[in-house]
């Protein structure tokens, strides 16, 4: 029933789109002819939601699009709802979607029939960092001391809080367990990153791997302490966040002797089967977004890695990332039966 409606919608969309092409003008001239739907495969308030609404705001503020951009949260089933919606609207150039790691983890963990190859990749906007945080009253000052505490304590006494289950936070936790072996964490899933950070401030959990933006304000107020960043190299942001530390002062986990690296994709995709000139329009649009001063400020505030690619390079990156997730999740035993 549902698919019938969306097929007609897609056909109608395609009809309008092809009609536009018959009109005089070059292929580059494609522009949306009706409001564009921007799907967020997550609930309100999370990192992806914040970024999508920020992009919407930047586009509106700088008048980058002739048609309005409508943001729609479709977070059901760990984002499966949103992905399935895009997959279904084949050929519709008026739907785009922001992705996070659940692009890979949701189909692998839930078995929902979906793969990133069933959408059209547009651009990578940035990579989100992960930082190991503890409460500032904790005695561990470095990642090394932290690992030593986990190893010295009883099994499963360290409570690691994170967003969702079998998603990025728990994958990083599983990767950390390689270092702390044979001691394991007790991973406690929460609904959102903000909640996780607050639980750490309140002392209900021992550590988190929050994204910078989720925890920065508690870091500033002196409630939390960063131990290391899960990236190959240190952050490039040198401006002081607290009285004596900048993002770039946080050591990488590797230099602290914890060989774990993980970053999360913040990218934009669109429906499968769209024309190259339609994709080109969005690639160009997002490039304009990234060039605004607002975006640069946003990136700095959240200490994002400003890597951004599109086209074939993006596809190669996605291929590698999918493989990485598969391996990590397989090792941790997070795969749905049959995957």
């Amino acid at each position: 029933m549902r698919s019938f409606r969306s097929t007609t919608a897609a056909l109608a969309g395609a009809a309008i789109a092809s009609f536009t092409f018959l009109a005089p003008g070059t292929a580059q001239a494609w522009e949306p002819t009706k409001p564009v739907t921007f799907i967020i495969p997550a609930g309100t308030g999370g990192g992806a939601d914040q970024m999508a609404r920020f992009i919407q705001g930047v586009i509106a503020k700088h008048n980058l699009m002739s048609q309005p951009l409508v943001v729609l949260n479709k977070g059901g089933g760990a984002g499966a709802e949103g992905f399935l919606e895009v997959k279904k609207n084949a050929g519709d150039p008026h739907t785009i979607i922001i992705t996070l790691s659940n692009l890979f983890t949701t189909p692998l963990a839930t078995g929902v029939p979906f793969n990133w190859k069933e959408m059209t990749p547009v651009s990578m906007m940035a990579l989100d960092q992960f930082v190991l945080w503890v409460n500032s009253s904790a005695k561990e000052k470095t990642a090394g001391e932290y690992i030593a505490t986990v190893k010295a304590g009883d099994d499963k006494t360290m409570k690691m809080g994170g967003t969702g289950s079998k998603q990025e936070d728990q994958i990083i936790t599983a990767a950390l367990e390689r270092v702390t072996a044979p001691k394991k964490f007790t991973y406690i899933p929460y609904k959102g990153g903000g909640e996780v950070a607050t639980q750490l401030v309140g002392g209900h959990i021992n550590s988190t791997v929050n994204n910078p933006i989720e925890a920065v304000s508690h870091w500033k107020s002196g409630a939390l302490r960063p131990l290391c960043i899960f990236d190959g190299e240190r952050s490039t942001y040198k401006e002081k966040v607290t009285a004596d530390m900048a993002w770039s002062d946080i050591p990488t986990c590797k230099e602290a002797g914890v060989d774990v690296e993980y970053q999360m994709l913040r990218g934009i995709f669109m429906s499968p089967g769209v024309k190259p000139e339609e994709t080109a329009y969005y690639v160009d649009l997002l490039k304009k977004v990234r060039e605004t001063p607002d975006w640069k400020e946003f990136m700095e505030k959240g200490a994002f890695n400003q890597k951004s690619i599109s086209g074939d390079e993006f596809k190669t990156w996605l291929d590698k990332a999918e493989k990485l997730h598969y391996d990590l999740m397989k090792e941790a035993g997070f795969l749905a039966p049959g995957k």
């Binding site: 308030g45 609404r53 705001g57 505030k301």
Partner: peptide
């Protein structure tokens, strides 16, 4: 939550 997103766009960091 949406208001929170708004704060960020105006360059305000919600929190303590």
């Amino acid at each position: 939550a949406v208001l929170l997103g708004g704060l960020m766009i105006w360059g305000l960091q919600p929190g303590p």
